[in-house]
C-alpha cells in the first residue's frame, strides 16, 4: 500500500543535513508542499481501489502526513532555538550611555558623612554666618584683645569691623544661647584665615565644630567620642592620643593625634584641636560653669578629606579644576 518508512527515513536524512528555519521550511515544501512527495501520494487514481483499499490507504496516508508534520515541526523548533543560541541581534556589551556623571564636592561629601555619624550620636546640626562680629569670633571665646590670632596677618577683617570667621568655634556662643544646655551640636562650615597658600595651607577651608555641654561632661567622654568618630569615618578601630595644646577657649586644651600610615610610614598625625570648654566661654553664653561642663573640638573637614582621599595638596579643593572634582562621584 503506502511505503511510509522509506519516505520518513528520507525526510529524517534531509532534515539532518539542514540547520536554519529557512532550510527546514524548504524541506517541508519538498515533502508536504503542494507538489511535495508526500502530497503527491494523495493525488492518485482511487477508481481502481476497492472500498476497503481506499479506507486503508486513507488512514495510512493521513498517518504518514501527521508523522512527517511532527518531525518537521520538531526540526523547525530546533532550528529556531539554535538560531537564537547563535547570538543576540545587537551588542549587549557596549558601555552604558547617557550617564549623569556628576559629583558632590569631596569636602561636602565628607561633611555629609560626618554629620550623619554625629547625628547618630545625638548631635544636631547648627549653622551660622561666615562674616561674624569680633565678639563672636574672639571675645566670646575668651581670646584676649591682644592675642596674635586677631592680627591682620591671621584674620580677614572687613571694613564694617566684622571678621570672616577664622574657625567654626565662632558659633559656640550663638549655639548655646539658641539651643540651651545641655546640648550636643555640630557646626560645619567654611572658615577663612589670612594665610599664604601652600601644600597644606588654604585661606578658605571647612571645619566642623562639635560642642557637648552637660552635667559632669568629662575628658573621658571627649576621648571616647573622638575615637568613635574616627572609627566610623575610617571604618576600623583607630588609635588616638591626646597631648597638651593651648587654645584660649578650652581648658585643658588638647591636640588630638591619630595613628595612621602616611606615605608608607606608620605615625601619629595631628587631626584636631579639642578640649574642655573654658568656664569663661560658658559664662559668656549664659551657662553656669559651676553646674555645667563641656567639651568642644574643631575637626578640619578639609584636612579630613585630604586624609580620606589621599589628596596631597589642599589647594586642589578650591581650584575649580574639574579633573579633580569629577573624581569624587561616589557619595554615600
Amino acid at each position: 500500500m503506502i511505503e511510509a518508512e522509506p519516505l520518513l527515513a528520507s525526510l529524517s536524512a534531509d532534515l539532518a543535513a539542514v540547520t536554519t528555519p529557512t532550510e527546514v521550511a524548504a524541506v517541508r515544501a519538498r515533502y508536504l508542499g503542494a507538489e511535495g512527495s508526500i502530497t503527491r501520494l494523495g493525488k492518485r487514481d482511487f477508481s481502481t481501489m476497492s472500498k476497503d483499499e481506499r479506507r486503508a490507504f486513507g488512514s495510512g496516508f493521513n498517518e504518514l502526513k501527521t508523522r512527517a508534520d511532527t518531525v518537521l515541526k520538531e526540526a523547525a523548533a530546533r532550528a529556531e532555538a539554535s538560531k537564537q543560541a547563535a547570538g543576540p541581534a545587537f551588542d549587549l556589551t557596549l558601555p552604558g550611555a547617557d550617564r549623569r556623571q556628576g559629583a558632590i564636592h569631596p569636602i561636602l561629601s565628607t561633611q555629609i558623612e560626618v554629620e550623619e555619624i554625629f547625628r547618630s550620636m545625638g548631635f544636631e546640626v547648627f549653622a551660622g554666618d561666615e562674616a561674624v562680629s569680633e565678639y563672636e569670633n574672639f571675645d566670646a571665646l575668651n581670646i584676649p584683645g591682644d592675642h596674635p590670632a586677631r592680627d591682620m596677618q591671621d584674620t580677614f577683617w572687613l571694613e564694617n569691623g566684622m571678621v570672616l570667621r577664622t574657625h567654626t568655634s565662632s558659633m559656640q556662643n550663638r549655639a548655646m544661647r539658641a539651643l540651651g544646655v545641655p546640648l550636643r551640636a555640630i557646626f560645619p562650615g567654611r572658615c577663612y584665615r589670612n594665610e599664604a597658600l601652600d601644600l597644606t595651607h588654604e585661606n578658605t577651608f571647612y571645619q566642623l565644630e562639635g560642642l557637648m555641654v552637660g552635667e559632669d561632661v568629662s575628658v573621658a567622654h571627649l576621648i571616647a567620642v573622638m575615637r568613635d568618630l574616627l572609627a566610623a569615618v575610617f571604618r576600623k578601630e583607630i588609635q588616638v592620643r591626646m597631648r597638651p595644646g593651648f587654645f584660649p577657649f578650652v581648658e585643658p586644651g588638647f591636640e588630638l593625634d591619630f595613628r595612621t600610615t602616611l606615605n608608607g610610614v606608620e605615625r601619629w598625625v595631628e587631626l584636631m584641636p579639642c578640649g574642655m570648654v573654658h568656664p569663661a566661654v560658658l559664662r559668656n553664653a549664659g551657662v553656669d560653669p559651676d553646674r555645667y561642663s563641656g567639651f568642644a573640638f574643631g575637626l578640619g573637614l578639609t584636612r579630613l578629606a585630604m586624609l580620606k582621599y589621599g589628596a596631597p595638596d589642599v589647594r586642589l579643593f578650591n581650584s575649580g579644576d574639574l579633573r579633580f572634582n569629577e573624581q569624587f562621584r561616589a557619595t554615600l
Binding site: G102, A103, N203
Partner: peptide, 20 residues
C-alpha cells in the same frame, strides 16, 4: 544636601568651590 544630590547624582553636575 538634597540640592546637591539632585544636581550631582541626578543631573550630572559637578560641584565646585570657589573663593568667597
Amino acid at each position: 544636601h538634597r540640592a546637591r544630590r539632585v544636581l550631582s547624582e541626578g543631573h550630572g553636575f559637578i560641584e565646585v568651590q570657589t573663593y568667597g
